[in-house]
Amino acid sequence: MRAGDAAIALSGVSLTLPGARGPVNILRDVDLRVEPGESVGVMGPSGAGKTSLLMVVSGLERATSGTLLVAGRDVGAMDENALARFRGGHVGIVFQSFHLVAAMTALENVALPLELARVPDAFDRAQASLEAVGLSHRLGHYPSQLSGGEQQRVGLARAFASRPDIILADEPTGNLDRETGELVIERLFTLAGETGCTLLLVTHDRALADRCSRRLSMRDGRVAEA
């Protein structure tokens, strides 16, 4: 990413998907600029397009129209292989539902995307990342042996292990009780601060959004300052 580049820059981005009764407009002409190191909380009702916004920014969903630059790169111009390599080096994603591989240990889950990206010290990085979220004693445990909070911390470790420029977090506490969720969020903001990465966070929790340096609202596929 060159000096002066936005971490995330959307211009006129729309997403339209087919539906049973015709095309459904998920995102509508979204303009958004997020600076490097900024933390942005996105709030809005269910169905507003919040998760779709993250999926488009990550390249997991293709925008129907508009321009999308992430870490200075034109995401819309990349093929699937280039997008996978780009995410591996620049974007970490924290999912609400953890998305851990049941047959892999915590260490293997964190190391997997690094191995796919051919990072030579994948397991060393994975171990360091798990230690950073307080799971040095859980390296060899499988997801079924971990609590929900521990599974989400594995998700955090996986997202940060590649030392990405940008972290996208989709309701990271949605499946956790309040106390456990607060512990996970403390880890998330601590890691973001220590690494200097950009954080784009989707949440229904106003207090969580208020922890970000800027808050946005979404409704009917449109983004506005909150």
Score class of each variant (00 low, 15 high):
128 A>I: 09
21 R>T: 11
166 I>G: 07
130 L>R: 02
156 L>Y: 03
219 R>N: 14
198 T>G: 09
199 L>T: 00
131 E>F: 04
105 T>F: 01
96 Q>E: 12
114 L>P: 14
68 L>Q: 09
154 V>T: 04
154 V>K: 05
127 Q>K: 07
217 S>N: 12
198 T>F: 08
5 D>G: 11
20 A>C: 13
13 V>Q: 02
76 G>Y: 06
150 E>K: 08
55 M>R: 15
124 D>H: 07
85 R>P: 09
105 T>S: 00
53 L>Q: 14
54 L>M: 04
176 L>D: 13
222 R>Y: 08
192 A>C: 14
62 R>E: 03
15 L>W: 15
110 V>D: 05
216 L>Q: 04
149 G>C: 12
54 L>W: 03
91 V>I: 12
201 L>F: 13
155 G>T: 14
91 V>K: 11
211 R>F: 09
223 V>T: 06
216 L>C: 09
177 D>N: 01
33 R>K: 15
137 H>T: 14
200 L>F: 03
194 E>F: 07
36 P>T: 09
35 E>Y: 13
219 R>C: 13
202 V>K: 00
172 P>S: 01
5 D>S: 15
190 T>Q: 15
188 L>D: 04
178 R>A: 06
52 S>L: 02
192 A>E: 13
111 A>L: 05
15 L>M: 15
30 V>H: 05
184 V>R: 02
212 C>H: 02
160 F>G: 01
160 F>Y: 07
99 H>D: 13
140 G>M: 10
170 D>G: 05
163 R>G: 14
84 A>H: 00
